[in-house]
């Protein structure tokens, strides 16, 4: 099996948190244009995603970035992690 890409890991964690933690009944399709604030992910669930990704990828772009980044969509969120992983490598 091919190694998971950063994108795979981010989507996997998003899906897990949506399923297990987010305060919603139906898990939305995680398309790139899904708007995070409208997806049902509240600030607590979002913080859980970020700490879980820190555990799995060893990176937290929200502490390490000098320019605070505020992703709007799932696609942007994935990109932030891809860039952070590339920078760290």
């Amino acid at each position: 099996m091919a190694e998971k890409t950063t994108r795979d890991v981010v989507l996997e964690v998003l899906h897990e948190v949506f399923t297990e933690f987010a305060d919603i009944d139906v898990v939305p399709d995680l398309t790139d244009d899904l708007v995070l604030l409208e997806s049902g992910l509240d600030s607590l669930a979002f913080a859980v995603v970020v700490t879980e990704l820190d555990d799995r990828l060893g990176i937290d772009p929200f502490t390490q970035s000098e320019d605070p980044v505020y992703p709007t969509t799932v696609g942007e969120f994935v990109t932030i992690y891809e860039q952070a992983v590339a920078t760290a490598a």
């Binding site: 600030s43 607590l44 979002f46 913080a47 859980v48 970020v50 700490t51 820190d54 937290d60 929200f62 502490t63």
Partner: peptide, 10 residues
């Protein structure tokens, strides 16, 4: 508690 970059602690 574990520190969170977004919410202080979780």
């Amino acid at each position: 508690a574990r520190p969170s970059s977004l919410l202080g602690s979780l």
